[in-house]
Simulated scan of single mutants.
Amino acid sequence: MQLRRLWNQVLYWLSPEGLRSGFMLSALLWINAIGTVYGYYWYGGQIEDTLVSHPIWHVLMVPDSPTASLFFTAAIWWLYKEPERRLSSPGVRWFRSFIEAFAVVTSVKYGIWAVSIIAMGAAQGGGLSWQDYMLSGSHLGMAVEALLYVRFFRIGMGPLAAVAVWTLFNDYADYAYIIYPYLPLELDDDVGTVQTFTVYLSIVSLLITWLASKRTGKSRV
């Protein structure tokens, strides 16, 4: 009986009503906001190194995961504060759609990327610390929440195309200018493989977002 009640609770929180409830949205706002701050702190050393040895604009492409969670936080905040866009101007609707598209694409991409890279390093003999488990759980959560909430977003083709340009250019910049996230030591000789995996993951994440927006019937801005 207790298991059935627990299962019903899980089903409710995964339902549209549960996902759009004030409690769930406010909880996600705080979780993602705190995770974003911690993520930028985590990238602090690489940001400092980039500022010393690279043009300043390269810094924009260094903290990938916290930037993804920052945009997802903004998307959830907008959904919490203004669930409907009937009164929004076309420009505001386009900007909101860009934020939502960016949030979904990058959350799925970097959520899967981080877990995969940690697993690849471990498969080549690297040990797993508590931080690796923490990072794997939090990044997997990024991908899952994006896939759960994409049904509530209106992702237009224009904003999604803009996100595609940014995402693929980010991949190019990471490996052309050597500003990709620090990898496990075991993968130092596999940078080319990681680069190929990253680009394909970007394309898959863009396709998933496009298909999800078409499936929910909310692809128009």
Rank of each mutant, 00 (worst) to 15 (best):
Q131K: 02
V10T: 05
R4E: 05
V104M: 10
S107Q: 14
T198W: 09
F169S: 09
H58M: 15
A176C: 02
A161M: 13
A161C: 11
V62L: 10
G141R: 10
R215H: 02
I117M: 05
Y175W: 14
L128G: 05
V115A: 13
T209D: 08
V62K: 07
E17W: 01
L6V: 07
T106C: 14
S21R: 00
T198F: 05
P159I: 15
A143Q: 07
Q131F: 01
L51Q: 09
Y180C: 02
K218Y: 08
Y180M: 08
L28Y: 04
R4N: 04
V105G: 06
W13L: 04
L147C: 14
Y80M: 11
S129T: 10
W77M: 14
V165N: 02
I117A: 07
L128T: 04
E145S: 12
L87R: 14
V92F: 14
L14C: 06
L128W: 01
A162T: 12
G18P: 03
A68Y: 13
Y40F: 15
R215K: 05
R4W: 03
F72P: 07
Y182T: 09
R151P: 10
T36M: 13
R220T: 12
V150D: 15
S26V: 06
S213P: 02
R154S: 14
V221G: 02
L185I: 09
E17K: 07
G156E: 06
I208R: 00
I155K: 04
S213V: 00
L28A: 04
W210Y: 12
F98E: 02
I34Q: 11
R86Q: 08
S205I: 05
G45A: 10
T216P: 01
S213C: 03
